[in-house]
Design a protein around this nucleic acid. Structure first.
Lengths: 240, 240, 240, 240
DNA sequence: AATGAATGAGATTTCATTCAT
DNA sequence: GATGAATGAAATCTCATTCAT
């Protein structure tokens, strides 16, 4: 799996050996999570929190370890290095979303419903775990060093699934012909993402002078409306 | 003016003294840039390039200085510290866009035309100076430490102008009632931004496995079409 | 405990985190110093030497580390920063003197004997560890940024103890009425201190053109004599 | 004249050319201080203030220049470098005291009166220009790199004059025999100095927890009393 | 598995000093 | 004389990473 290389390589050549040691943990004591797994998850959870609060570049591995209540050496034991940790945070949390999107894409629903589903799914995820979304969006999704992010198969997969939804929509003539499926998938994801970013940045970042007035629900409804109708057009929406 | 605090706070006194020294330049030899100004601009230009290529966190001040052909001390002389440099890069370049958006917002054009103008403007800017856009979007616009970005009056101003366009649109019934102006301005900017990010990340970031097929023009057309008509709707766009 | 702020404030967060990490050492293997403690002490000892030789401002942390035979990072690991190191040097070494002075002050001896004891103690300490005294006196005791030095509880404690000795002396009529206990404690400590400074500066600082002729013993005797009799007065000391 | 070498040599070899340029200024427009002299004095005065407030190591040349209202280049023009500036501060201000002490030493007064005069002189100087005294005492008088301070002929001269006072006192049997003149001169100066330091550090350095109660006058009286009678001895001062 | 002492590359930043104007 | 732009040596400090226990 592709891994980001966010941090300036420090120390020696260590990035190479990422996530070596207990990569095969998990598959041992099925059912009752083995204590080892607990620790792993603890660290991952702490990483989400710390990354969300301080940013990837603004925190130390030891901050994460402290939050998790473990020694920082253990983070290396499990995740190899800081990049590996971010990658694992991403992989673990994104997988859920990617899978759900896949299923929606493959369902027999109409394009409209598929898109609505995805929007619902995303907003639901955001409401349930805003910190996770924040990290996914801000720390992983956007990073100059992260052209590689798009190389991540899981990310590519979601893009492809959504592109396919639009392509299918074109075949069924649900999608307006002026719309390019690939471009549209980018815009769609971008609008979605920005919606979250605006919340994450305005509401969690203490004070907000801009659109704090907009509720999550308003945002969702506006997004769906825009997809369906476009933003313009009074009584009749046949413009341009 | 609000200033970003990207890097881990590293001495507070420093930030206070930012850009103190030759702040009174520029007003001297109108037309031919006075030598001092040359250097300032040189550095700013170099900063854009280096930030774009390596990212704010991935470069050293000395990289910028080298690119500009000056001693790194001069960067501190003029911009106080790394944050100050980024802030100046932002202020300088964003001002242009902010002003243009303001003018568009205040023009007597229809909402549709205003939005099209802005889209055109943005894509034009991107074509003319993709590096600048990249830095504005990636390094400044998105940063965990940057809830403050939205506190930046210039950023807020653009948000407000665009929100006003939508609000005016509502009055003239150009805007579909299901659309909230504030939310819409976020989605609009977000979609725009993501369009650029996708280019910046896929095309400049060496290889691209995803949507390299989408041209800038396709993206622009799709965005405008979506605004006008929505993404859905076959022959007739009265859905939902 | 009050800590000195000798160096230009250079990041405030740093100071806060001072000496956090292995603060809980020492209480483990009584008798044989546990390995960790060894390193700490090694560094402290090296710091005394280097501070004494080059002065606080004239040396680098890496000089201390080199002298101690450790990586400079370890100095930060243990002492947080340069100020923290100086503070620890002070605390560690001054504690001994402070305690001894306290005991003398609380002994039932006459004022004369108490003062003589303290003088003896100080000169003894100087003979045993001139470098330590040099650092305490020159680097910590005198520093423009160090009005805070007097806020240091340990320093204040010594002043108080000595003041008390003089106050008690007043009650027992051992102290001449014209003498103010507080003022006298300052003069007493000052004379003592200067005696050391004169040695430290003239004898260790390479050449000396001034009073290199004065021996430590002469100095001590003169000080005690002055305390007892005053400097003036021929056969009978009832002057002024 | 000996010059201190306080600051770690930075830049290239510049210290060598100290105070070259306008060393011969002053002697040009007798009577009305030439504008040039004004500037020199302005800088010197500013240096005293800034050194006193921030300490030699804690201030920048530009701080002094700013305080003086001149460009920092001018400080170099007049004083060569930072060390040269400190040296000039010292030379200029110490000269007054040195001369006065000389005159007292050469007067035909009794030892007792000479010493009282010097004490009066010192306290007077302190009351008139505490900042100057602070700098002389803290920044110049005590500095690990400044064993050389005692090499300063002006400093040595004062020590010698005072030592001579005590020596003369011995001849006239005014000085108790147990007292060594050289040692006594050190203790005398040290007590005096510390008296000032205690004021400078406790009163100007904001709050004071120690002997803020002691007034300058009490200090002076105590010092004189101690010299005359010693600190000890109730009714009769023939002890030891 | 777990810990945290130890390391040191490397980045930021400061500021004395030079020098062209 | 004056100025302050320009330089860059050097110092502090951070923190990812290694590794012995």
């Amino acid at each position: 799996m592709a891994r980001p290389a966010v941090s300036r390589a420090r120390g020696t050549a260590a990035a190479a050996r990422r996530e070596t040691a207990p990569a095969r943990a998990a598959a041992k004591d099925p059912g009752a999570a083995s204590g080892r797994d607990d620790r792993r998850k603890q660290i991952l959870k702490a990483a989400v929190k710390v990354f969300a609060e301080k940013g990837y570049h603004g925190c130390r591995i030891s901050d994460v370890a402290e939050e998790a209540g473990v020694a920082y050496g253990l983070v290396y034991h499990y995740y190899g290095n800081k990049d590996g940790l971010l990658a694992s945070v991403f992989d673990t949390n994104w997988a859920f979303f990617a899978k759900a999107v896949d299923e929606i894409a493959e369902s027999g629903a109409t394009m409209r419903d598929k898109l609505s589903h995805i929007v619902e799914l995303a907003f639901q995820a955001f409401e349930m775990a805003p910190l996770v979304v924040k990290v996914l969006v801000l720390e992983f999704g956007r990073n100059a060093r992260l052209g590689e992010a798009l190389d991540n198969p899981q990310v590519a997969r979601v893009f492809k699934s959504i592109t396919r939804i639009f392509e299918d929509g074109k075949k069924t003539r649900e999608l307006y012909e002026g719309i390019d499926p690939s471009a549209m998938s980018i815009l769609f994801i971008g609008a979605l993402e920005t919606a979250f970013v605006s919340f994450v940045l305005t509401n969690q970042g203490t004070r907000s002078k801009v659109q704090s007035a907009v509720t999550l629900d308003t945002m969702k409804k506006t997004l769906i409306a825009m997809l369906h109708r476009g933003a313009l057009g009074g009584g009749h929406a046949h413009g341009l």
